[in-house]
Amino acid sequence: MFDVDFILGHLNYWLFTVLMMTGLYIVVAKGNLIKKIVGLNLFQTAVFMFYISLSKVTGGTAPIFPVDMKIDPTVVYSNPLPHVLILTAIVVGISTTSLALALVVRISEEFGTIEEDEILAITTELSHLENKELGEAMGGRG
């Protein structure tokens, strides 16, 4: 099963998987929110390239006919459908990225930091304070 042809034919997929996982690592391991978004973008771009690599046909060319529309039947064209889907996905990706960045701006405005650890510490402290207040209001020891 693992002969040279198989490896050469699947190498692309594995390489894109490595890129994808680098992006995932940034998202999981890094605490800075902007860096997390960059990691998500990396992941996304790797998925796009993986998807486009599925549309490649050996010996094919870009799916654009000659301008005079005299199509040579011997010319092989790559599959245009994944290109269309990924074009849509890129634009949707940039809109989600911009939304995420706007959220980061709001978070930084509210908490004064964009580090995940510090935000968690602040929210924990806030909820402790709130619990204490509520407990006192209910007649607890305070």
Partner: peptide, 10 residues
């Protein structure tokens, strides 16, 4: 990978 339109957009 022959995806010139996608490359342009990217």
């Amino acid at each position: 990978l022959d995806a010139v339109d996608v490359a342009f957009t990217e």
